[in-house]
């Protein structure tokens, strides 16, 4: 085989590896792209570090809260108020009611989404139940707070924003089943 062929083969193998790497690079690229542009209604899953958001009180915006349960998620999950009027540049707190009606200890994760998507980058949260997983004992209920603010740069065309949360069941059932199984054995033994 001549030198030219060897060079071509090397180059092609390198391209294959490069494209395989690129396919994984698409994952962070996609997130960065969505975050920068606010597309997809994605908002940051961590508290804002910007302390200077509270400015003079701006115009009115109405914000609607929507809750969804993913798949078979059995929790009762709903906003305390479905719609409130707030002002840009001022912090507001809203709460969501949540209850675990099952007889198992369960862990949930809420994922937010904002519509219209170009409002997403202007909605900042100081505190949110979606920043961490929520654990509820059987029958336990709670009021989960979210403390949020719209910055001044919210486009004028946006008069109303929807903030929706989808709650996911992230309980590790493998662990649970193992403990249940274990309990069963103990009961058998005591009998």
């Amino acid at each position: 085989m001549n030198e030219g062929s060897k060079k071509t083969i090397k180059l092609l193998c390198f391209s294959v590896l490069g494209m395989f790497t690129f396919s994984f690079a698409l994952v962070p690229l996609y997130d960065v792209f969505c975050e920068v542009t606010g597309l997809n209604g994605k908002i940051e899953l961590e508290a804002t570090t910007n302390q200077n958001l509270e400015t003079e009180i701006g115009r009115d915006v109405s914000i609607q809260f929507v809750s969804h349960n993913n798949e078979q998620m059995p929790w009762i999950f709903r906003p305390s108020e479905s719609q409130i009027k707030i002002q840009t540049g001022k912090y507001h707190t809203a709460t969501f009611y949540v209850k675990n009606p099952t007889n198992k200890r369960m862990i949930a994760q809420a994922i937010p989404s904002v519509a219209p998507s170009n409002a997403a980058s202007h909605l900042k949260k100081l505190e949110c139940f979606c920043f961490e997983e929520q654990e509820l004992a059987p029958g336990e209920e709670a009021l989960l707070p979210v403390r949020l603010i719209f910055d001044d740069e919210l486009p004028d065309s946006i008069k109303s924003v929807v903030l929706s949360y989808t709650i996911f069941d992230v309980t590790d059932y493998n662990d649970l089943e193992m403990t249940d199984h274990h309990d069963g054995h103990e009961m058998e033994a005591s009998l």
Binding site: L12, S15, V16, L17, G18, M19, F20, F22, S23, F24, L26
Partner: peptide, 9 residues
């Protein structure tokens, strides 16, 4: 060459 690695990914 360009896209089969992406499918593999």
């Amino acid at each position: 060459i360009a896209v089969m690695p992406v499918l593999a990914g």
